[in-house]
Design a protein around this nucleic acid. Structure first.
Length: 258
DNA sequence: ATGGTTGGTCGCCAA
């Protein structure tokens, strides 16, 4: 089984790259964020490629969708306690005994911005909803754009970014509460290295200068961690590619399970 | 502190 998370920064403008990834990686489940696409505007090419599309769409911002080989047995849009309930950021789907939560975490913008406190409240409330609905022994994946770099080794310039948005101690402390509940950062099961990123700013040639963050995460409960054999971040998807249009500012994270 | 680029949408906001 293979599960992917990818902030595509518009599903419609990224369609050729999404179709290419489906063909190349043959994933069973794909969690998409920032689809910026309404439910009734999902391109039919995704169905023709063999995928069921479950969309919780919105424009011009946000929007999440789950692509899957199988039809979900149960779908939940959003979560109770969301402090910004009119923003389409969370989509949950159950496939038999496996549940996936697709999350586009509030960015927060800056520690001095009111949205920073909203981000912390949003994360705490989503964690509490997950903890109330699931058990750490369940087969559960929580994946998406967390907008938090878990540790300094996930940051291109940890000294320069210390205490700033995506890297602040309150954000990291909140993420540790997810780990303490029983979710594992699947990438770190297989990688110790510093400087592996999933996002690079569009501006200033950040990708080519190696200025990135690892903020796109696949978290799994212990049963999922025990079955996880490989996690990769496909940096190639951050490069301009002939015929497939411009890249997202995020690369896909690809996890394989026994 | 600002700037740089992209996307959706139509003058500008979010990232």
């Amino acid at each position: 089984m293979r599960i992917v998370t990818w902030n595509v920064n518009s599903l419609t403008s990224r369609l050729p790259r999404i179709l290419s990834l489906l063909e190349r990686e043959q994933p069973d489940v794909v969690l998409l964020q920032e689809t910026k696409t309404l439910d009734d505007e999902i391109p039919s090419e995704l169905n023709e490629a063999g995928y069921v599309v479950t969309s919780y769409g919105q424009r011009p911002y946000n929007g999440v969708a789950i692509l899957s080989r199988a039809k979900p047995d149960e779908v939940t849009r959003g979560f109770p306690g969301d402090p910004v309930p009119d923003e389409a950021r969370v989509l949950t789907a159950r496939f038999g005994d496996l549940t996936v939560v697709d999350a586009y975490v509030v960015n927060g913008r800056d520690l001095s911005d009111p949205m920073y406190e909203v981000k912390l409240e949003w994360l705490a409330n989503l964690r509490e909803w997950i903890a109330g609905r699931f058990d750490p022994s369940d087969r559960l994946i929580v994946g998406g754009d967390f907008n938090i770099a878990p540790e300094d080794r996930d940051v291109w310039d940890p000294e320069g970014r210390a205490g700033t948005i995506h890297c602040s101690e309150p954000e990291r402390a909140e993420l540790r509460r997810w780990f303490d509940w029983g979710l594992v950062d699947l990438f770190r099961l297989h990688h110790d290295e510093t400087g592996v990123f999933s996002w690079w700013d569009y501006r200033g040639g950040a990708f080519h200068r190696g200025m990135g963050l690892r903020i796109d995460l696949l978290l799994g409960t212990r049963p999922m961690a025990q079955a996880c054999t490989e996690v990769r971040i496909d940096r190639n998807e951050r490069r301009p590619t002939a015929g497939e249009g411009k890249p997202s500012d995020h690369a896909p994270v690809i996890a394989t399970f026994d």
